[in-house]
Design a protein around this nucleic acid. Structure first.
Lengths: 194, 194
DNA sequence: AATAATAATTGACCGAGGTCATTTTTGTGA
DNA sequence: TCACAAAAATGACCTCGGTCAATTATTATT
């Protein structure tokens, strides 16, 4: 059994996260370097690793926080009225992830991860997004706008699959300028329509 | 316009690939280190990078070759008779990729990539797997074992999405021992059944 | 065969993530 | 308040992928 963290540790952690967020807003996630973070935060390198395990762990906390904010926003809009409407609700998330391949990688790596102290935020975004879609789907099934006969949770997981797919393709085809938003709609239509 | 590569260059490339394959068979893809490869091959470090761009480029060639072999094997089996049968054809690929997260990452990164000299093999595996599934699907649509009304190519791309999804989940949930093979079947059933 | 031009290779060097034995700080009980 | 154990932080050091100006080998030209 481990003790609760000391006040000093929480402060250090907060400082590191604040500094990292600052650097990200200046240079993007891909531009974040560990040495810069610790230099600005005024701590030693080892400290950062003792808090977040590795660089990805730090990024996971930042990105997880961002995505949670977006989900709050989407949640406020209520249940969509059509599949097309449902698709549009996911555009905020799609735009965010499409900005930087690193975001996609981190989300993919930590979704449903081990639930270790530092990165459980990303796991939460995954389950939360699934729950959100699950709620929509069961209501839309009742309204007849989504096909019945399949578990809402299962259908929600399918949406996750298509989300990841259109993002992966958009990163591969960057030169062809394929828009992930336009690509998503047909998949969800075929997956969800009655 | 660039000239054809000299004989010496082709030999060096072959030597590097052979040595890398050897190391992979001993230590797995994750255990492959650039320094080991060049040491055993008896060339300088820079040579490897001039051939493959980066470490991932080398891995892409190795993994791409492996997957192409598997596709040859699957192709020989002919069109599946049911969705269940179709699902089973993909198990070889699923088993291979599930062995090592690095395989998954490389395939995801280079699928449909820029088509640059060194990694076009992976792009080929992607389009080849899609074409294979596309052929199956159009025949199965005619036979009534797969739902009609949707482009076979589109349905094939959906299969890719579910393949990637069950693999991603299996890596995240490694402690829960979730089997990607068992997870795939329901998705393909829901996606393809008439 | 000698020379020029291009291809191929070299290896010292760099950057950035990550480790861990040691040191400093903090909380606790006598 | 002093001593002591656990927590937190430190920074020298390491690994390993990746770079590039310099060097060597090959091919084309006269």
């Amino acid at each position: 059994m481990s003790r609760a963290p000391q006040k000093r540790r929480l402060e250090t952690r907060a400082k590191l996260l604040a500094v990292a967020q600052e650097i990200v807003s200046e240079q993007g996630y891909s531009g974040l370097r560990v040495e810069d973070v610790v230099a600005r935060a005024g701590v030693a390198k080892g400290t950062l690793f003792s808090h977040f395990g590795d660089k990805d762990g730090l990024l996971a906390v930042l990105i997880g926080g961002e995505v949670m904010g977006q989900l709050d926003q989407i949640h406020g809009l209520g249940t969509p009225e059509s599949i097309d409407d449902l698709t549009k609700r996911l555009f905020v998330h799609l735009d965010f992830v499409a900005k930087d391949r690193m975001i996609f990688d981190i989300l993919l790596r930590y979704s449903g991860a081990t639930g270790s102290e530092t990165n459980e935020v990303v796991t939460e975004t995954f389950t939360r997004r699934c729950d959100l879609a699950k709620g929509w789907i069961s209501q839309m099934q009742a309204a007849g706008t989504v096909r019945a006969g399949l578990d809402p949770e299962f259908l929600a997981e399918g949406i996750e699959a298509f989300l990841a797919h259109v993002l992966a393709i958009s990163f591969c085809m960057e030169h062809e300028l394929r828009d992930p938003k336009a690509a998503l709609q047909p998949f969800l239509q075929a997956w969800l329509s009655p």
